[in-house]
Simulated scan of single mutants.
Amino acid sequence: MSFAGMMLVGMIVDVIIGWPKAFYTRISHPVVWLGKLISMSETRLNRGSRSHRLFGGFIVVVLCLLVVIIPAAGLQSMLPNSISGLLIGGILAWPLIAVRSMHDHVCAVALPLVAGDIVTAREAVSMIVGRDPKQLNEEGIARAAIESLAENTGDGIVAPLFWGLVAGLPGIAAYKAINTLDSMIGHRSERHEAFGKAAARLDDVVNWIPARLTGLAFAIASGSGCMRALNCMNRDAKAHRSPNAGWPEGAMAGALGVRLSGPRAYGDTLVNEPWLNGGAADPSAKDLQRALLLYRRTMAGIALALAALTLL
């Protein structure tokens, strides 16, 4: 069974139809199902002393991994080693790949921003970032959207495809479980610092290679901007607050010739983050459009790589 072929099929199906609203209305989404399990588990286990919370968080990680890996492995074992098996496997992987939704969410920011509709652009960007949109001007909105596009290309697309390529359906399912755990409980807050520690650390580990591959993919897809992207990524990525997000964001900043990261506001709190490509100008609405073009080129390149691996 070609795992590369399965991932390619899942990617193509997602690009064509995304996750239809009718599906979401009737059956929701596998990540939402997992989110409900995480919420219920947290209610029961995130209590008591710090050591109890640490252990409870570890138990939730193990539970969620078992819940997704066992059925995924069972389904994969039943797939015929043929074209039909490859197609079925790809369809099963499809809900866990977010190529189209990523593009659509960022495009919803870019279109009104280019048209000068700051109010609508702020509302759209608030759906994909946590910072206070009321304080964002055109450059701030563009910067937030580009950063989200770069980081989430890594953990929403490249990482699932990578682990699917490594282990098929169990690989992509396990990764999505880890990433969902991190997004829900892996925060450095009083409530989640101990309980979400296992999830956050595991997410850092499983994203280590994909984040760097994402930066490399952005650099290659940028064409003439390849060396700028690589240089910026290698120079600035380690200064980022995240051990992984700085690599795709740094490559994106270098490829576009803009600066990213830097100070930002979360509610009333101002966070002073270091700049990526700090000597460049702030991004504009047109730079956000250029980022989307680079994203599309990167997705096309990844699809071609998967096709080549499938043939090999």
Rank of each mutant, 00 (worst) to 15 (best):
L34N: 03
S49Q: 02
M40E: 07
A72I: 07
S49K: 01
W33C: 00
L66A: 06
P30H: 04
A72P: 11
L63S: 09
I27N: 05
S51F: 06
L54N: 10
W33T: 09
C64S: 09
R50P: 10
R50F: 07
V32Q: 03
F55V: 15
M40K: 08
F55N: 13
V31K: 00
G48K: 02
A72H: 08
E42K: 11
S28D: 08
V61F: 03
G56M: 11
L37P: 00
G56E: 12
M40N: 11
A73P: 12
N46W: 02
L45D: 07
S39L: 07
M40I: 08
L63K: 09
R53V: 15
H29P: 06
I70K: 01
G57P: 13
V61L: 13
V68Q: 02
L63V: 15
V68N: 04
I59P: 00
I59S: 10
I70T: 05
C64D: 12
K36A: 10
R53D: 15
L66I: 09
L34H: 02
H52Y: 09
V67M: 04
R44G: 12
I70P: 03
G74F: 13
L65D: 05
G57L: 11
I38L: 00
S51A: 14
I70M: 05
F55D: 11
V62T: 13
L45E: 04
W33D: 07
V61Y: 01
L45V: 09
L63A: 14
M40H: 05
A72C: 10
L63C: 12
C64M: 09
V32P: 00
S49W: 01
V61W: 02
P71F: 09
P71W: 12
F58L: 14
V68P: 10
S49E: 07
G35D: 06
F58V: 05
C64K: 01
S28T: 08
R47T: 15
V31Q: 00
A73S: 14
G74M: 13
R44T: 07
G57C: 14
H52T: 15
W33P: 04
V67R: 00
S49V: 04
P71A: 10
I27D: 01
L65N: 02
G57E: 13
L54A: 11
G74T: 13
C64N: 13
S41C: 11
V61E: 03
V67D: 03
I59E: 08
S51Q: 09
R53W: 12
V61P: 08
R53A: 14
I70D: 03
P30S: 07
I59G: 02
V67F: 03
T43G: 15
V62E: 03
V68Y: 06
H52G: 12
V62I: 14
K36E: 09
P30F: 03
C64Q: 05
V32K: 09
V68W: 05
S49H: 01
P71G: 11
A72F: 07
I27K: 02
S41G: 15
S41Q: 10
R47S: 15
N46P: 07
R47H: 13
G48W: 06
V67N: 01
R50E: 14
K36C: 08
H29N: 07
S28H: 05
R53H: 14
R50N: 10
L34W: 02
T43K: 11
G74E: 12
